[in-house]
């Protein structure tokens, strides 16, 4: 999975095609060039293939590099100059993510499919190849309205409501401290399906998915009782149970 394998020549910029468009990866390791140089190099690369890149949907993976809003704007300007559409930034650094929010750029957290593992520490204990930030659950304190999406490679805990038309997508489990009426997908990351749960104080999702399994909310709009419930996979099916019975 690691593309920054030791034997290979380390390129600071890699561009590759993915299912959702092109992915530009700016290397973040300590020995990589600083951003200014990277942008210059990127410009050269873009010049060479200007026609190929025009109108292409682009994601930029910044790794754990910490960028200031002005630096993000510089990056965006560069892409705009070459008529590329920036679909999303992928960043494993909190500082960069909040800078992106300030600038108004769409950001995504790194996911298994779309990120590289960090340079392994010296004491590599050969555990399962989890991406960086693997232990990082995301705490969100807001209400998700129709059309808004939160996506995270690990668990998501949301304090607020998930309205109809909103979507929560988590590598692991989802907990909603509020009303769940939107669409939720848990266990998107294969290794985490087994333990993925979805729970909410008021549990009435339009649709819920755990791994490959999918189930719909009730057809008739019966108002479920106002009680916490939890969905999990049991014997290959999604079951929803009142929270009270559960002891972990």
């Amino acid at each position: 999975m690691s593309l920054s394998g030791d034997g290979r020549k380390k390129e600071d910029i890699t561009i590759k095609g993915t299912a959702s468009g092109l992915l530009i990866r700016l290397r973040d390791e300590a020995d990589a060039s600083d951003l200014e140089e990277l942008l210059l190099e990127l410009e050269t690369r873009l010049q060479q293939g200007a026609r190929f890149f025009r109108n292409a949907p682009i994601s930029v993976d910044l790794g754990r590099r910490e960028l200031q809003p002005a630096e993000l704007e510089a990056l965006q300007d560069l892409l705009v100059r070459y008529e590329m559409r920036l679909e999303s930034l992928v960043s494993g650094a909190n500082a960069t993510r909040s800078a992106a929010r300030q600038v108004g750029l769409p950001i995504r957290l790194p996911s298994l499919a779309n990120t590289h593992a960090p340079t392994p520490p010296e004491t590599d204990n050969a555990g399962p190849g989890l991406p960086f930030d693997s232990a990082e659950a995301l705490l969100v304190r807001r209400t998700l309205r129709s059309g808004q999406v939160i996506e995270h490679h690990s668990d998501i805990c949301l304090i607020g409501d998930v309205n109809p038309g909103a979507e929560v997508i988590a590598g692991g489990s989802i907990m909603v401290w509020g009303m769940l009426r939107g669409t939720v997908s848990a266990g998107v990351v294969a290794e985490k399906v087994k333990n993925a749960i979805i729970c909410a104080i008021y549990f009435n999702p339009a649709q819920l998915r755990i791994g490959d399994l999918l189930t719909r909310g009730p057809e008739l709009k019966v108002q479920p009782e106002m009680q916490p419930e939890m969905a999990l996979v049991r014997e290959g099916r999604i079951v929803v149970e009142p929270w009270t019975r559960h002891k972990f």
Binding site: G147, P164, G165, T183, A206, Q207, L214, G217, E219
Partner: peptide, 15 residues
């Protein structure tokens, strides 16, 4: 700003 699915009562079937 989709609505047609809601009016037809098919919102929860969208994949």
């Amino acid at each position: 700003l989709r609505n047609l699915d809601v009016v037809l009562g098919l919102e929860n079937r969208i994949v």
